[in-house]
Design a protein around this nucleic acid. Structure first.
Lengths: 149, 149
DNA sequence: GTTAAATATTTTAATATTGAACTATTAGCG
DNA sequence: CGCTAATAGTTCAATATTAAAATATTTAAC
């Protein structure tokens, strides 16, 4: 390899930081998703149920905005959740373009079945770091993820 | 995570750490992927080219292992890269079950076109943290992502 | 040495994901 | 009012992703 990417120490360090950050996020995330799949939910489905549970009925537009997903994606995820009767679409009365997505009783129960497990799992994973370390990790991550507020 | 699991401070802290970690990884990742898409590559495609560039020809199995992806997924990604003539499959001579994936001239050029941009981008993003902070971030992330390295 | 077990890859069936084109409805402007 | 813009959602065509079943080849065991 030429001199191009031997780069300075600064560059090497940044790349190393990047890789380790991604790997850490990936490790926890795939483990969480694996657990979710045992309950028959995908990550996206869980996120929708979670949002509806804590925020109440939302339009598909609002869901997409909050979960950072495209409109087409939300349509698909809601379709699949509706198949399982975890949510239902209710056409807006004021503006008939809008579908409000409501959590059903089953959807709420499903979420309540899963939430403690997820909380527990994440707690265990993150507690590989002690209090001081976690506070520092939060500070550093905030510096990086800041633009998303 | 909801107010229903107010739990101990320990739990709250872990959840907060988790969210900030994910957000940081997400912020950088979506920005990197957006840049990649302008070059007509997906993240997975880039990762394959990058691995082949730096490690030389690899079997699909090895690629899956290094990139943490399933066999079926690697088949698909290689198919698409092969369509664009960025890689080619060569059947193993010793063991004819194996396909070794080789970077083509075009594939190498494509990577060299993109790499500086990516390195530069990541360097800028990560250098929001100074040297000490990055070393600490790496240490913390390694503790979390440890099972995968 | 032939058969069974292991391994590498492919295929298949779901779901996810995006951007672009399309449909339906509403809002705005003259 | 009637036409046009904008908006909400759906559909479509790619690609990604996994797990599980299928195929091909090699290794191991008897």
């Amino acid at each position: 390899m030429g001199t191009h990417y031997n780069g300075s120490k600064k560059v090497m360090r940044a790349l190393d930081s990047y890789i380790k950050l991604m790997r850490a996020a990936d490790t926890i995330n795939s483990a969480v998703n694996l657990s979710l799949s045992k309950f028959g939910l995908t990550e996206s489905q869980f996120n929708v149920l979670d949002a509806l549970y804590h925020l109440g009925p939302l339009s598909q537009k609002e869901l997409g905005y909050k979960l950072l997903k495209s409109g087409g994606n939300i349509t698909m995820v809601i379709d699949n959740l509706e198949k399982d009767a975890y949510v239902e679409r209710r056409r807006g009365t004021e503006d008939r373009r809008i579908f409000f997505v409501h959590l059903t009783k089953e959807g709420g129960e499903k979420l309540e079945e899963i939430l403690p497990m997820k909380v527990n799992f994440i707690t265990n994973e993150m507690n590989r770091l002690n209090k001081t370390e976690q506070i520092e990790l939060q500070r550093l991550c905030k510096k990086i993820g800041i633009r998303k507020q």
